[in-house]
């Protein structure tokens, strides 16, 4: 079955009734494409899948995990991290506490990127870091902080750009070894984040569709990158509203490179380059 002829409605309704997860406001084309992939991977017809979802909640949970897209990178879009390093984080130097929420953090590379930056700026101690995702499996990987070296080798370039080079002053070069933050074993094909990083964040399962701010605090920075591209316009607006209510005034919202606030919620933020600032 291909993405053209899938009956998405039938699937979405069954999933919602059996497990409570609501994908009705996800972007249709990409959801169809993922559903086609889930059917192929499970060697099932849509009818079979739906029957199984209806009688087995844990199967429904498994489908949710398979249908969401979990791709991520260390320091994805180095340019954004350079802005964070040189423009955003310095403005929080004098805060006693810095609260940071990674919404849709997947396997945690984004969280580790942030902690590495904070550490370079001497701000890690006072940061409180929260990572959430709808998929509890990716959160388990984030907690462990162990990744396949093979899959992440390309992203070490990103590390070099953000941590070693200074885009505002090419003569400054910090030769910071990877071993300051993670161990690399090429033979066994893994990289492992150091304990001072893995122990720091609080990870919690959280569904942006249904859940409010589950933490008892507001945030200085919220990162929600490459998550809302999977949501339709209405759901995006609701999520932006949640973020707006969860940020301190002057707090920062970072979206992905090609994500933007198009609707009414844009009035609640100022935009500087790629970063939204809560009014």
């Amino acid at each position: 079955m291909t993405i053209e002829d899938i009956d998405i409605q039938y699937f979405v309704t069954a999933l919602k009734n059996s497990s409570g997860y609501d994908f009705s406001e996800y972007s249709e084309k990409s959801l169809k494409r993922r559903l086609a992939k889930v059917l192929m991977d499970n060697k099932m017809e849509l009818n079979q899948l739906v029957t199984e979802i209806k009688k087995n909640v844990s199967f429904a949970e498994k489908v949710v995990k398979e249908i969401t897209v979990n791709t991520t990178e260390l320091f994805r879009d180095p340019f954004i991290w350079q802005m964070l390093r040189y423009k955003v984080l310095p403005t929080l130097q004098d805060n006693k506490i810095i609260n940071i929420w990674h919404a849709g953090c997947s396997t945690g590379q984004e969280v580790y990127s942030m902690m590495i930056l904070l550490n370079e700026l001497g701000m890690l101690e006072k940061a409180r870091i929260f990572g959430t995702d709808i998929n509890s499996d990716v959160l388990d990987i984030a907690r462990k902080g162990i990744y396949k070296y093979r899959f992440n080798i390309g992203y070490l370039d990103n590390f070099d750009k953000v941590i070693k080079e200074n885009p505002y002053n090419y003569e400054k070069f910090n030769d910071i070894p990877y071993s300051k933050y993670f161990e690399i074993d090429k033979v066994k094909d893994f990289m492992r984040m150091h304990p001072f990083l893995t122990e720091k964040p609080t990870y919690k399962k959280h569904d942006l569709v249904r859940d409010e701010n589950i933490f008892f605090n507001k945030f200085d920075i919220i990162l929600c990158r490459n998550v809302i591209i999977y949501f339709n316009y209405n759901l995006q607006n609701r999520v932006f509203n949640l973020f707006s209510n969860s940020l301190y005034q002057g707090g920062f919202l970072l979206l992905g490179m090609h994500e933007t606030i198009l609707g009414p919620m844009s009035a609640s933020f100022d935009k500087k380059e790629n970063i939204y600032i809560k009014k």
Partner: peptide, 21 residues
């Protein structure tokens, strides 16, 4: 199409991007 994203055309004359593998 932006580098590193899939570019879909959605009903309602809109783009949708994806970072699927």
């Amino acid at each position: 199409a932006p580098a590193n994203y899939h570019m879909y055309i959605e009903l309602g004359n809109k783009f949708a991007l994806s970072t699927e593998a």
